[in-house]
Every structure is written in structure tokens, then in C-alpha cells.
Write a protein that binds this DNA or RNA. Sequence first.
RNA 1: GCGGGCGUGGCGGAAUUGGCAGACGCGCCAGCCUUAGGAGCUGGUGUCCUUGAUGUGCAGGUUCAAGUCCUGUCGCCCGCACCA
Length: 801
Amino acid sequence: MKYEYERIEKKWQEIWDKNKTFAAKNDYTLPKFYGLVEFPYPSGQGLHVGHPRSYTAIDIVARKKRLQGYNVLYPMGWDAFGLPTENYAIKNHIHPAKVTENNIKNFKRQLKSLGFSFDWDREVNTTDPSYYKWTQWIFLQLYKNGLAYKKKMNVNWCTSCKCVLANEEVVNGVCERCGNEVIHKEKSQWMLKITAYADKLLKGLDDVDFIDRVKTQQRNWIGRSYGTQVTFKTTLGDSFEIFTTRADTLFGATYCVISPEHPLIEKWKGSIKNAEEVQKYREESAKKSDFERTELAKEKTGVKLQGVMAINPVNNKEIPIFISDYVLISYGTGAIMAVPAHDTRDYEFAKKFDIPMIEVVAGGDITKEAYVDCNKGKMVNSDFLNGLSVDEAKSKIQEWLTEKGLGVKKVNYKLRDWVFSRQRYWGEPIPMVYCEKCGYVPLDESELPLTLPNIDSYEPTDTGESPLAKIGDWVNTTCPKCGGHAVRETDTMPQWAGSSWYFLRYCDPHNDDALASKEALRYWCPVDWYNGGMEHTTLHLLYSRFWHQFLFDIGVVPNPEPYSKRTSHGMILGENGEKMSKSRGNVVNPDDIVRDYGADTMRVYEMFLGDFEKAAPWSQSSIKGSKRFLEKVFALTDCLIEGDEFRKDIESDFHKTIKKVTEDIENLKMNTAIASLMSLLNTVLSKGNINHAEMKAFITLLNPFAPHITEEIWEICGFEGMLNESRWPTYEESKCVDSSVEIAVQVNGKIKARIMVSADISADDALALAKAEKNVFEAISGKTIIKELYVPKRLVNVVVK
RNA sequence: GCGGGCGUGGCGGAAUUGGCAGACGCGCCAGCCUUAGGAGCUGGUGUCCUUGAUGUGCAGGUUCAAGUCCUGUCGCCCGCACCA
């Protein structure tokens, strides 16, 4: 019989749709499994072959779990707010809502054509007012708990999107989305106080099963460091604070540096003799974009302040103060003490400005370079610290500073608060109004959702105001507090808002009274397994953990952490090994693959093409291998024979494969799971036929990977019911071993022979058999045996001299 | 610079975690079938000269035994990037 994938796949997709085969049950007594993949942004380009890599992998897990008796929730939805849609809408004069609707339709068709077992009854859409009502509700809770605030600040401004970006959205000084220049602009923005959760976000990582690189990346991003905040007095009679992790080197501090944005400069204006020069430097660094600033990072610049000196608290020596943009206003106190002998940046700066150095840790050669990694050295030139190790000196100086009230222990983070407002149309309106009398006032929860007004023109403005600002009817409103005139906030939320909690909505997607019922959340949360891209580690993944921990703190969700387990897939590259992109012309369209090879082949191929976690190039010729495999599997229906048990001679092959596939799926080793199924198929084919028991086991194991063809074979064979209602096969450990095995015989570690022995042979017998082999006998005769080893089921090694 | 990861046939990749390197697939070669093959089937396929040597980026080391562990070194990828 010919393998007609097109007919078979269409047939089963319709049956699954009609029967709602994969709808999660609302029976909260069953053991549950919640598998999650990142819901896509429905772009105009349609599905990328990268999407199915992640979706197929968790689909395989979900389908296996169902066969193992779990109540499985495997949902799908649309992260549909966002700039590309808005830009497309502007260009083509179609409303973004309409563009979104069309794109979703196309995405949904594509996803369905791949046979994913999503529960389509729970589909969510972040642009649906009944959904973003709850996104806005969460924002109000954040506001009421002091975690949302408005602040005038220097923000990242994308010159092309005409919109503010979060720090996480600026990549190498350019806009993450469009690649255009990002500059600094002073604007008043809504901020979310993610820094208040820095410690919780770090601590939570200890309790979850995330792959290490995700944990490490989040830890580095949060960037906690322990140090000391030290007070430096100045010759003007005032003082300022610096932050250092190396208080032990205080005696080596020969100057201080403050950031160009530091408020002290304004304060000292009257006393600074070179005010003009200083002002010029400040203006220059303000003009620099992030990109320029990092580019120029190699050569240090700065200006010495004339007329004010800092006083080193440990020895009361006067040292100069510089301003330089290598000190960031956003980290620590925006001021540092510089120890050129033991810090490479300070060293470089001191060389350029000819500032003296004092070695305070012996062991390096400071005429050549800064001695930074000096844990082995002893303190010198440091008065009461002399002779101590660095660690000893750290605690001693800390004690001393505390006693004199000159320095306190301090923890600093690299993490910044989250810039939450965007000056664009296609996002959730922020449910706040501004009243002249009352200031910012939150909308009453009963007013939610605050829907986006339907307008004709949503072009961004050059002034940096949201397009919503132009709609008088919408903007002008009354103050919920005093009833007087007020104006609405016209900025919208960033795309990350809707995706920060979507997995909660899947639990109970049609609830009008809450983001989801308590019962549903208690049953389904946390997500048991979440797979997604590494690129979201410090964006979506971190943001959603923050929101979730907050929702836990206010009693909305039952667990502090949203995801028990997080894995990540590698990218699928173009055939030439480069990233797939339109401009490189190496894009593969999933529709073409489904049409030419079938969904099952596509699924098997994407799982077989390499290590799941690593990037792998697409290979059009390799797909054929997966197609051939499925064709051979289908042809098994022509050689089916009776038999309700595995035949003895191939029984262990089946048990071993069941074990391997079962374990490999849990470890995302889909490539080796498929390889073992291919091997088993080859074994069966060499026998010439397959019996009922063997067929059932084989196609059940293959079902999660290739669901359509296996369901069809089940029907052709006349097995009872449907495959998706059957059970995952089990194995017996005792039957996974062969009774006799081939072992290698080595003499001095070199292979001389291979012999068949029974699996439970004794060491003595194995050695005796081995030494009787001709090659072995010749190699050892006349020599002294020093050592004899037998590694059960592996090898024998005879060591001679 | 810091952090994470990786180097195995012509290619994608396996290797029970120290125990027969190259599973499985692609490609390639030969044969069969065919008017034909970008189809199918069978067999072969790390390298080198036949015997049997050799082989996991390179150089050392530990061990009866190293792709796997240790030291050094070279190269590549990802993330962060003046975080004091």
C-alpha cells in the first residue's frame, strides 16, 4: 500500500478537531501535566521552521504523557501586540486589528497542518480586550503596591521606531527589533520596580529546574555584588559616597571619578575653576549614543575638576576628582574611588592622565599592568592592613570603616527598573489618568478593560508622544478621585506585558471575574515544562518570573515560581550554516515541506536533525531519510502476522527500545530516540514480518513523533479503538539485557579478538576463554602476566610484560 | 575583558559517563531493476600501502584502559559588556 501522507494527515487532523481529542479535562483529580511553548508573535511572514522545532518537542512530551495517563494541558495563543504589525498597518493603511486577525488565521492554519496536539479551546490572544483587561488589572495591582511609578529620566530612544526601549531591548547599542540607532532622551516614563524583586528572582532560581545556562545568564543579568559604600569628604567641606568591592585597597586610592551626570557637579559649579571645560565634556558625553559610548570604550577620556579635592578617609590625603563617562550614573552611587595599581580601567586612566599609583597588594608588577587577581598577595603600604591577605584586609577595613562611621556594607545590582511605557498605538492602554489636582490616579477596576480607541491614523510622532494623544475624545476624561477634568495616559504597554502572564490565562481562559479561578490555578500551576528560546532569558522569562512572584505575594497565584522546568532549543540555520533570513535568501517555508514531504516527515526530520539544544543547519537532502523511514514503517502493514507477544529472539530489542525512547523523550534527546526506532525497524525488517504485539509497541512509540501515520496504521491493522486512547508501552529491566554478549579481548589495551560469552559469565571463565583465543595466546605467550581485568559485558584486558 | 558552551568521517551527529570510537541518517561507491532516474532494492563506505598500523583541534600528564579526567595551548559559537 502506498503511503499517502496528504490524505492521511488531512483525515486525522479533521478527526482530532471534531472529537476535541486534545482538550485538557477540567477534572482536577487526575494527575496533570502542563507543557508550554512560547506563543508566537503572528507576523506577516508566517511560521518559521524554527517554531516547529520547539513545538514538536513539547508536543512529543505532551502526547507521551497523555498515553501515560496524564491530564495534559498543551495550549497555544497569540502574542499579537507589537511594532511590526503596527508598522505594516501604517504602510498599507489597514487597521492593526485586521492585520493581526489575518496573520493569526494564517499561523493557525500552519500550526494545524503540522498536527500539534494543542487544546484550541483555550486559545488566547493578548490583543483581545477580554484578555488585556487582566493585563491592565495586574498593572493596577503593581501600581497599588508601589511597584509602578512614573519617572523623568534618560531613556533609550529608538530613532526609527520613535519609541522608548527597555534596557533589555537595546542590543549592542542598537534597537533589538529594527537594528537602528538608539539615543538617549530625557522623558517621563512608567517604570516597574523589578529591582525590588532582585533578591527573590535570584533565590527562586535555586528551586527550579532550569538548564544551567539560563540560570547563569539570569544571575549575571541581575548582577548582585557585595561591597562597601564609603564616604569621602571634600575640600569644600561636603562629602560624597562611592561604592567599592575592594575596600581593602583604600590606601591605594589616588583619585576619584564621578559620572558626568552626577548631581554634585551642579552643586560644585561655583567652586570649579574649569567649569567651562567640565560643562563641555558633560555635553559631549550626553550626546553620545550607547553605540558610540561602547565603541569608544577603548580610549578613556575625562576632565579633572579644578578647585575641589577628595579626602581619602583612611589617611586624610587629598586626591583629585575627575569626571569621566567610564563611570556610570546608573550603577552604585555614580562615583568611584580609583585604585590604578589594582584595577585595569583605573590603570589605563591613570597612565593617560599621569596620576601616581600606589601598590597595596604585593605580588604583581604594576609597572607593567594592574595587579587585579591578587588573592595570593599580601597587603603593603597600607598602615594597619600591612601583612594581611586580601580577604583578611577586607573584613578588617570593613570593621574599621563601620566603627568610624565612614563606610557601610552594601549590595548592588546591575539590574535596572523596567521602562514600561511605549509611545505607540498597538499595545495595551495604561489604565491611569492624570488630574491637575490629584496627580496620577488609577482607573477603577470596574472600568476595565480600557479599550484602545478605533482610529484611522496611528503614525508615531516625532515629538515622542503616543498617537493616542491626538484623540481628544479619548484623552479627555474625568478624574476617578475628584471628578474634575483629567487626561488619560496615552502611552501603551510594551509587548512583554501580555506575555508576562499568559500561561495563567490558559488555565481558565474564559473567566470574566478573575484572570483565572483559584481552583484552576491550584491544579494546573506551575507549568511543568516550558521550552523556549535563549533570546528570551533576560527579557520575557525574567519579566514573567517577576510578575508571577508579585502575584504570589498578593495571593493571586499559588506558587512563587511560574515554571518548574525550563529548556531551550537551538536555532535552525539555513542550509549554508547562516541564520535564516529573507536577505540571505536561505529561508525554508514550512508549508512547502508539509506539501512535499508531509507533516510527519517534517516533525521527524526536525527532531532528528541534531542535538536539540544546539543550532543546526537545515538540509534538504536529509529530509529524505526521514521520509524513507516513514515509508518503510507504513509498508509494515503489508507484512503483519498474528502474535500477541514479542517474539523471543527480538524481545530484548523491543524492551531496550521502549526504555530508550521513554527516557530520551524526558531528556529531549529526540534524535537518539528516533535513531533507536530506526534500528528497531531494521531489526524487524530483517525478519521479514512483524506481529501484532510488536506492531502495537512500535507505532505507539513512534506516535508522539509522527502522530498521523501511526494512527492510520493502527486503523489499518484493525486494532481496537484509536491509538491516542491506548497506553504507552512499558518495559522490564530484566528483559533489556541479552543472554549472550560480544566482548572485546585486549592485551595491554590493544584489541586482539572478540568473543561471544554468556552475559553472566564469571571473570575467571571469561579470562580463560579469552586466553584461549589464538591471537591472544600468541600475544601473551612467553610473557609475564601482571594484571587481568574483566569488565562485565564489555571487555577483558590482559596486561603483560 | 568577564560569564557560559563547543572542537569526533565528505556532512548532521552517536558513544551506557573512564571500557570495542564513528550508532542512526545524509552523501558517496558497486551491483540489481529500469527506455530512463533527483525512484526502489542489495552490499560497501574513518584514514593509510596488503598483512595491521593509525585515528576524536594541538602538546603533555594520570590510568590496565582517555573522545570522556587533569595541565597547558590554539580555534569557534553564544550571552554580557567601562557594573567599580
